[in-house]
Measured scan of single mutants.
Amino acid sequence: RIEKCYFCSGPIYPGHGMMFVRNDCKVFRFCKSKCHKNFKKKRNPRKVRWTKAFRKAAGKELTV
């Protein structure tokens, strides 16, 4: 099963990425440490230029 990165919305293939479980049992999956570090710094994915959330908000990503 291919999961989605919580921060950048990129695909996470089986055996890859990192799973972060908070004390309230909420699960966050990250494709790379870059995404996990930005999440820990409480960065907003919509303001980080390389994420899909930014591209969609800025009108750069074509949605079908």
Rank of each mutant, 00 (worst) to 15 (best):
R1M: 13
R1Q: 10
R1Y: 00
R1A: 11
R1G: 12
R1I: 13
R1W: 07
I2C: 03
I2N: 10
I2S: 08
I2W: 05
I2Y: 08
I2H: 02
I2M: 12
K4N: 02
C5F: 01
C5R: 13
Y6Q: 10
Y6S: 12
Y6K: 01
Y6I: 02
Y6G: 11
Y6L: 04
Y6T: 11
Y6R: 01
Y6E: 04
Y6W: 06
Y6A: 13
F7Y: 09
F7P: 00
F7G: 13
F7L: 06
F7I: 12
C8Y: 00
S9F: 07
G10S: 11
G10D: 09
I12V: 07
I12F: 01
I12T: 09
Y13I: 11
Y13W: 10
Y13C: 06
Y13V: 12
Y13F: 06
Y13S: 12
P14I: 02
P14E: 05
P14N: 02
P14Q: 04
P14V: 02
G15T: 05
G15C: 01
G15M: 02
G15R: 01
G15Q: 06
G15Y: 02
H16S: 12
H16W: 04
H16A: 11
H16R: 05
H16L: 08
G17Q: 08
G17I: 03
G17K: 05
G17W: 01
M18I: 11
M18C: 05
M18Y: 08
M18S: 08
M18G: 08
M18E: 14
M19Y: 07
M19N: 09
M19H: 06
M19E: 11
M19Q: 09
M19D: 10
M19W: 04
M19F: 09
F20A: 07
F20H: 02
F20L: 09
F20W: 09
V21Q: 07
V21S: 03
R22M: 14
R22P: 07
R22C: 00
R22Y: 11
R22V: 10
R22N: 15
R22E: 15
R22A: 13
N23W: 04
N23G: 11
N23Y: 05
N23C: 04
N23L: 06
N23P: 09
N23Q: 03
D24E: 04
D24G: 03
D24H: 01
D24L: 01
D24W: 00
C25W: 06
C25K: 07
C25M: 09
C25T: 11
C25I: 03
C25Y: 05
C25E: 12
C25H: 08
C25D: 13
K26P: 02
K26D: 12
K26H: 09
K26Q: 13
K26V: 03
K26T: 11
V27P: 03
V27Y: 02
V27K: 02
F28E: 12
F28D: 06
F28L: 13
F28N: 02
F28C: 01
F28H: 00
R29M: 07
R29K: 08
R29I: 03
R29S: 07
R29W: 12
R29E: 07
R29Q: 07
F30L: 02
F30D: 00
F30W: 00
F30G: 01
F30E: 01
F30V: 06
F30K: 01
C31I: 00
C31D: 00
C31T: 00
C31Y: 00
C31P: 00
C31S: 00
C31E: 00
K32V: 02
K32F: 00
K32S: 14
K32G: 14
S33H: 02
S33P: 09
S33M: 08
S33E: 15
S33Y: 02
K34D: 14
K34N: 05
K34H: 07
K34A: 11
K34Q: 14
C35Q: 00
C35R: 00
C35Y: 01
C35P: 00
H36T: 04
H36K: 05
H36I: 07
H36V: 09
H36E: 15
H36Y: 07
H36P: 01
H36L: 09
H36N: 03
H36W: 03
K37S: 11
K37Y: 08
K37E: 15
K37L: 07
K37D: 15
K37H: 08
K37A: 13
K37P: 01
K37T: 11
N38H: 04
N38R: 02
N38G: 04
N38Q: 08
N38V: 01
N38D: 13
N38E: 14
F39T: 02
F39H: 06
F39W: 10
K40R: 05
K40C: 11
K40L: 11
K40S: 10
K40M: 13
K40G: 06
K41L: 06
K41F: 06
K41Q: 05
K41Y: 03
K41H: 08
K41D: 14
K42T: 10
K42I: 06
K42M: 09
K42Q: 12
K42W: 03
K42D: 14
K42A: 12
K42F: 03
K42R: 05
K42L: 12
R43P: 11
R43N: 15
R43S: 15
N44H: 03
N44G: 08
N44D: 13
N44M: 06
N44W: 03
P45E: 13
P45G: 08
P45T: 11
P45N: 10
P45L: 05
P45Q: 09
R46A: 13
R46W: 10
R46F: 08
R46M: 11
R46G: 14
R46Q: 14
R46N: 14
R46V: 13
R46C: 11
R46D: 15
R46K: 13
K47H: 09
K47A: 10
K47G: 12
K47Q: 14
K47R: 04
V48P: 08
V48A: 07
V48M: 07
V48N: 07
V48W: 05
V48F: 10
V48C: 08
V48L: 07
V48T: 07
V48R: 03
R49C: 13
R49Q: 15
R49A: 15
R49Y: 13
R49N: 14
R49W: 04
R49H: 13
W50S: 11
W50T: 12
W50C: 09
W50Q: 09
W50E: 15
T51H: 05
T51D: 15
T51S: 09
T51F: 03
T51Y: 03
T51V: 08
T51C: 10
T51K: 06
K52N: 12
K52H: 13
K52C: 13
K52M: 13
K52W: 11
K52R: 06
K52Q: 14
K52E: 15
K52D: 15
A53Y: 03
A53G: 09
A53N: 10
A53S: 06
F54I: 11
F54R: 04
F54C: 11
F54N: 14
F54S: 14
F54M: 11
F54Q: 14
F54H: 11
R55G: 15
R55V: 15
R55E: 15
R55L: 13
R55N: 14
R55M: 14
R55Q: 15
K56L: 13
K56Q: 14
K56F: 10
A57K: 03
A57S: 08
A57E: 15
A57C: 05
A57P: 09
A57V: 08
A57N: 05
A57I: 07
A57Q: 08
A58N: 09
A58C: 06
A58M: 08
A58H: 03
A58D: 14
A58E: 14
A58R: 04
G59T: 10
G59S: 10
G59V: 10
G59K: 04
G59P: 12
G59R: 05
K60S: 14
K60L: 13
K60D: 15
K60G: 14
E61G: 01
E61L: 05
E61H: 00
L62H: 07
L62M: 09
L62T: 10
L62P: 09
L62I: 04
L62A: 12
L62C: 03
L62S: 13
L62Q: 14
T63L: 07
T63V: 08
T63C: 07
T63E: 14
V64R: 05
V64S: 03
V64M: 13
